[in-house]
Amino acid sequence: MIIGEYKTDYGQDEGIWNTWAKKLGFVVALLLLLLIPFIGNDYQLLMAGQIAIFVIAVVGLNVLVGYTGLMSLGHGAFFALGAYTTVALHQFFPHLFPLITLIISMVVAGFFGFLFGLPSLRVKGLYLAVATLSANFIVLFFIRQDWLEHLTGGRGGIETPNAYFFGTELITNQQKYFLIVPIAIVMFLFAQNLFRSRFGRALIAIRDNDHSAEILGISLFNYKLKSFVISAAYCGAAGTLWAYFFPAILPEDFGLNMSITLLICLVAGGMGRSLGPIFGTILILMVPELLKMGAFYFSEGNASAQIYFSPIRDIVFGLMIIGFLIFEPMGLVSIWDRFWRFINRWPFAK
């Protein structure tokens, strides 16, 4: 859509930043992300950290749902596995380097992603959604068990450790921000990179039609499982950061609600698009906060009106999902696209 951008070889076209606008946008975004921890207060940094963690998980989900076309309602389980792996590791090695925990969590979550992915070879669509949903319930059931209580804290939840970065404990949200956001950026770029390779194109072919893809010589067994493993590893990484970011975790945090929230972030942003997870996550996580502010403003701090807040938030949330599906099925990204198309063509066309 950018005019006057001439490419002379395929390498330029394939690059991640293949236009000047993308390059500029990326630099501006990086600068903004650098600025946030110095201007934001503690609460805003809490939101920023939460959004960054969710972005990682949703980018991972995007690999599976958006690009491979396999539906999952069980990604909360991978989140849980990442978080609980971190907690368990820190019981044995209290000062483990965060990146090592991150990698181990990703491996553990990836392994379970492999197990969850096995049914995907036989079933797809809705049946797969319910199979992953079941797997989510089963994983959380084991986390709640008494005989794992020394590791997981059982149904009462467990306090999570803080990350130690070369001897300094990361305590404030500002410090944690500098751990989480760089990891989020790297993982985002990795996923971006995936889809300009043979591997990524194979996944997209499977999404478009898996039988045709198989005829073209793409091994469904291989690619579907790899897609599952990658997206599970992303969620595992998000889980690790979640455990570092929040003071305690509960099994209920990672239930069906989490899985659905991840999926909704993806749909609201735009499936199978690189910027979709970012837009969607920001929107979905900010809306409850805005509603909270609105409720506080309208009730003028009246405590009796506050009890209506949570049901109203639920209703608005649900209506928003349905609204997106009906009026903007391609997600926020399509609004973004339209905006830039308009800027580009103005004043010659709309």
């Binding site: 539906m71 669509g125 809705l126 959604a129 659905i260 999926l263 909704i264 749909v267 209506y308 949570s310 049901p311 109203i312 938030r313 639920d314 209703i315 949330f317 649900g318 209506l319 928003m320 999902i321 349905i322 599906l325 009906i326 099925p329």
Partner: peptide, 24 residues
């Protein structure tokens, strides 16, 4: 006429709407 994925998500959205309105 939309994909079954959209339909399923719509009913998932309904869960929130129904739950919220019931407790209201």
């Amino acid at each position: 006429g939309q994909s079954s994925f959209a339909m399923i998500l719509c009913t998932i959205g309904l869960i929130w709407v129904l739950e919220g309105s019931a407790s209201l």
